[in-house]
Write a protein that binds this DNA or RNA. Structure first.
Length: 259
DNA sequence: ATTGTGGCCTGCCCGC
DNA sequence: TGCGGGCAGGCCACAA
């Protein structure tokens, strides 16, 4: 599914749109428009504007234009296409089919080409001037001290805290399981009981996982991924993995070494 | 205030 | 062979 790595890949693709002027806006799916806007509003807001920069905060992709900011969210099955080219061919938990009927939002550029958000399950969305400040600091750039602050004073399960986008923006279910597995930390540990040494280890691991899985090609390329199934075993020590719901999400962890 | 839960959306897979 | 139930999780509304 799209997590911070995939959204960053989308952002790099969206760089192709910088400097181009929007000739037309296609918003066929009212459900996909968030923040109380309708198709007319989004068409009026962006038609004739020029895309100036791309930004990302966590899983939120923003296109700054000469008018308002266009905010794009991808849910768990959303993909981005620019000039007909997809940034990512195949997405975990999404369909491998590539059906234009799933196009929920699109921009046409002056001189040809365009940008399309294709989302089978319609869990993504489009927003005008999204409130990115409501999100926590970006997981890819936060420092160790920042991560300590994210965890401090919370009795919530460690995993739930890491996935709370208002506290820390970008991590989804697969990345979080991989990071905690490599960090040897139990996902259900109360966040405020992770000590200073462990926070440093967690931070170091998070950075390494993001850099490494970005190079490998996505959130689903973690070392734990192949064993994220009911009969999975820990790739490190061979113990049967534990399968639980943590923070409302299916969680795999090793009872042997994640403490 | 914080933390937890249920529902939304839809394609796919499994078992009958 | 077709059908139905369960599952996936990012996000939000709502409850405690």
């Amino acid at each position: 599914m799209p997590e911070i790595l995939e959204i960053e890949t989308y952002r790099r693709l969206a760089e192709l749109a910088v400097g181009r002027t929007i000739a037309g806006v296609s918003a066929p799916d009212a459900w996909f428009l968030k923040g109380g806007i309708d198709a007319g509003a989004v068409i009026d807001a962006f038609t004739g504007t020029t895309i100036e920069t791309t930004r990302r905060r966590g899983k939120l992709l923003m296109l700054d234009t000469s008018g308002p900011v266009l905010g794009l969210r991808f849910g768990m099955t959303g993909r981005l296409l620019v000039d007909g080219e997809a940034a990512i061919d195949s997405l975990e938990y999404s369909s491998d089919r590539n059906d234009p009927a799933w196009d929920r939002f699109g921009l046409d550029f002056v001189g040809g080409g365009g940008l399309v958000l294709r989302d089978p399950r319609r869990l993504g969305g489009v927003e005008i001037n999204p409130d990115d400040e409501a999100l926590g600091p970006d997981a890819w750039s936060i420092g160790a001290a920042g991560l300590r602050d994210v965890l401090a004073g919370s009795k919530a399960p460690l995993k739930a805290r890491l996935m709370d986008q208002k506290r820390l923006a970008g991590l989804g279910n697969l990345l979080t399981d991989e990071i905690l597995w490599r960090s040897a930390l139990d996902p259900v540990r109360p966040a405020n009981e992770v000590d200073a040494t462990e926070v440093k280890r967690l931070h170091r691991t998070m950075r390494r996982v993001l850099d490494q899985l970005d190079e490998r090609g996505g959130s689903h390329q973690g070392d734990l991924q192949d064993q994220r199934s009911r009969d999975g075993v820990c790739p490190r020590d061979g113990a049967p993995l534990e399968r639980r719901k943590v923070g409302g999400r299916t969680t795999y962890s090793c009872p042997q070494h994640q403490l």
